[in-house]
């Protein structure tokens, strides 16, 4: 196999790992936001949020 093959696979691996970590952080954030929104819809809020809403 040529050197170009090893270089190309290395950069593809670097992109895949970086993209994977970015996707993990992004999807995790979306899932947590959705979960918080569901709790809020069910009337479950943090005490500090409740006092702000009451004002």
């Amino acid at each position: 196999m040529s050197h170009t093959f090893y270089v190309a696979v290395s950069y593809i691996a670097a992109f895949a790992v970086s993209f994977g970590l970015v996707a993990w952080v992004w999807l995790d954030h979306r899932a947590r936001q959705r979960e918080l929104a569901q709790l809020e819809a069910a009337g479950i809020r943090r005490r500090s949020d409740r006092s702000e809403a009451a004002q």
Partner: peptide, 16 residues
């Protein structure tokens, strides 16, 4: 950003 997600995860656990 991962720390932010972890803080939210812990807040959700406390709320539940």
């Amino acid at each position: 950003l991962a720390m932010r997600n972890e803080i939210l995860r812990r807040r959700i656990a406390v709320l539940r």
